[in-house]
Design a protein around this nucleic acid. Structure first.
Lengths: 221, 221
DNA sequence: CATAGAAAAATTGGATCCAATATACAATCG
DNA sequence: CGATTGTATATTGGATCCAATTTTTCTATG
């Protein structure tokens, strides 16, 4: 018997849907840090019971996106300046290595894809989309590293600080600079210079971290 | 009225207890990879309902220690040779950096603690304890890095491959070598040579990875 | 005896209900 | 009037029950 190849991914469970929705809302900054997350309220929003909501919240807590206290509930986790600095330092280390490993494997297709995301980033005017496109650009290069575990950690660390990064990109004029740095990274990749791409990626992340720090220090006083 | 200050930490929930117990069993290799984990069976072992068990399993899945399929249940995750290699490579990167950051902060107390764990590792004859003592030794140095996020990732990556490492230490004679490498790392730390400690840590992890690879390739055929 | 199909058992995800505890607010007492 | 105590409400963690689906077992048939 012949049949079309169908993506038979298991339909997402309710807990999966809630988890993804809350994760997205947190990393995009739609849920402010410190905001209360009531199980019942979330359950009603999705028209489900609290059971899958609890499961979703438990997962979010494992990833450090929320904190929970018995009888008190969950709140969106806030990060101190020191914690944010540490995560940027970590990202610089990991992502510099990931792109170093990726460069030898980058083919024409991957480079073209990265080019499209790079251009899209420069053209985009909606602040809410910068974060997404920024991820797409970096991931399109990182994927060639063929290191799923590294990528999982890249994603996890970026998830934690993405909302701050997005806020900074929106409130300051960090976008043109990020765009230029993207161009330089992509050029190094196109020339097959792994060391240069690695150094530029590291600097790109540390620069963004420093900008964010000054932004936050002044915002938080 | 005077009274003693008491640690009023919230008693762990049932889900926490199950999570920690299963995590320990998996990383210590008491649960073999591929082994089925039935919610009902686990619930009965702990005399609780399936609800907290499900929550614990959901968390374990987030950490990559098990995989689940609807209507089929959970199995202890097995890692391919490539996945294990990648995790060792990742650990080498992270832990080399962590110890570099730690060395300047190591005080007399931390060094003495590390020395005790180092000696205990050499003296220990029970294979089941090597993994634990190995962790204690490395963590006692890493903690001085004052990088909680790095340490979280160190723990998470070590969790995934610890059972293979323990098996290899038990079945081959990798312990004396690891002991010598620990000595060298500790000596570099005592001399305040961060770069050397970093290089030695990196080599220590990569060496262990290579030993494990040859062990596994021959074991798996 | 081998095999296809039906029935039974096993197993998970989710809904509803209950117990435990924190918080907010009213009642009481000095 | 302020402080303290009691009570009602809000909220979470867990138990029990139900629905959906897979796996296994049994049975009928060629």
């Amino acid at each position: 018997m012949k049949f079309a190849a169908v993506d038979v991914r298991q339909a997402a469970s309710a807990a999966d849907i809630v988890y993804e929705a809350l994760r997205k809302a947190i990393i995009e900054g739609d849920l402010a840090e410190g905001e209360n997350l009531r199980q019942d309220q979330i359950a009603q929003m999705f028209n489900i019971s609290r059971i899958p909501v609890r499961e979703a919240l438990s997962r979010l807590e494992q990833h450090g996106l929320i904190t929970t206290q018995r009888y008190k509930g969950a709140v969106v986790a806030g990060l101190s300046i020191e914690e944010i600095e540490e995560i940027f330092e970590f990202r610089a280390l990991i992502e510099a290595e990931v792109i170093r490993l990726a460069v030898p494997n980058l083919d024409r297709e991957a480079l073209e894809k990265a080019r499209r995301h790079c251009d899209a980033f420069d053209r985009e005017t909606d602040p809410h989309r910068w974060g997404e496109i920024n991820r797409n650009f970096h991931y399109s290069l990182y994927e060639a590293s063929r290191r799923p575990y590294y990528l999982q950690n890249v994603r996890s660390s970026l998830d934690r600080i993405d909302r701050y990064l997005r806020a900074q990109l929106s409130f300051t004029n960090g976008v043109p600079r990020a765009g230029r740095e993207h161009e330089a990274i992509l050029a190094a990749c196109e020339q097959g210079d792994a060391d240069l791409a690695s150094r530029l990626t590291r600097d790109h992340i540390l620069d963004a971290g420093r900008s964010l720090m000054t932004f936050l220090r002044e915002q938080r006083g």
